[in-house]
C-alpha cells in the first residue's frame, strides 16, 4: 500500500486489497466523502482496466483484475481540476497485506483526513503578517532614502 496520494483541494484517495477485492475510499477530508464520483483503475502507461462510481459513503469495491503483472493506479476525478491518485503496488495485489499493516495504514488515512489544526492556521496567519511587516519595512526604508 504505497502512499502516492495526490491532493487537489485536498482530494484523498485510499485503496487497499482485502478478500480478493480492491476497495477504494475517497474523501475531501474532515469526514466529507466524495459521493457519486468516477474511479478509474489504470495500469502504468494509462491503460484503463476498470471504471466504477463511489457510493454515498465515498466507497466502491470491485474484483481484482485477471492479470496482475503490474502496479495499479487508482484515480478519482472529483470535479474539474480535482484529481486524487493512489498506487497499489503489484506485491500487494498478489500477497494481501496483514491486518496489522492494514490497521496502521487506516490510522495514517485518518490522520490525512483530519482538519488543519489551529496551530497550523495560526502559523499561516503569523507568516502572512510577518511577510507584510518585511515588505512594509522595505517600503519605508526606500521612502526615507528617496526623501
Amino acid at each position: 500500500m504505497s502512499t502516492t496520494t495526490v491532493f487537489a483541494h485536498k482530494v484523498i484517495v485510499f485503496a487497499w486489497v482485502e478478500d480478493g477485492r480492491i476497495h477504494v475510499q475517497g474523501s475531501f477530508g474532515s469526514n466529507r466523502p466524495i459521493k457519486n464520483c468516477v474511479i478509474q483503475v489504470k495500469r502504468p502507461g494509462g491503460i484503463l482496466i476498470h471504471q466504477a462510481i463511489t457510493d454515498i459513503k465515498g466507497l466502491c469495491s470491485f474484483d481484482l483484475p485477471d492479470h496482475l503483472e503490474s502496479d495499479l493506479i487508482v484515480e478519482l476525478n472529483a470535479g474539474p481540476g480535482h484529481l486524487g491518485q493512489w498506487t497499489i503496488p503489484k506485491d500487494e495485489l498478489i500477497y494481501e497485506v496483514s491486518p496489522e499493516i492494514l490497521e496502521k495504514k487506516m490510522i495514517e488515512k485518518q490522520a490525512l483526513e483530519k482538519s488543519p489544526s489551529p496551530t497550523r492556521i495560526a502559523t499561516g496567519i503569523a507568516l502572512i503578517f510577518g511577510l507584510a511587516f518585511v515588505v512594509a519595512r522595505v517600503k519605508k526604508t526606500k521612502c526615507l532614502k528617496t526623501s
Binding site: F28, R32, A78, I125, I128, F129, A132, A136
Partner: peptide, 25 residues
C-alpha cells in the same frame, strides 16, 4: 500593508469553510 495582511489572512482561512453541493465540495 496592514490591510493587505488582514485580507490575505481572511482569504487564507476562508478556504476552510466548506459547503457540500451534490458530489462536489
Amino acid at each position: 500593508m496592514v490591510h493587505v495582511a488582514i485580507l490575505a489572512s481572511v482569504f487564507f482561512v476562508a478556504s476552510l469553510i466548506h459547503v457540500n453541493i451534490g458530489p462536489v465540495s
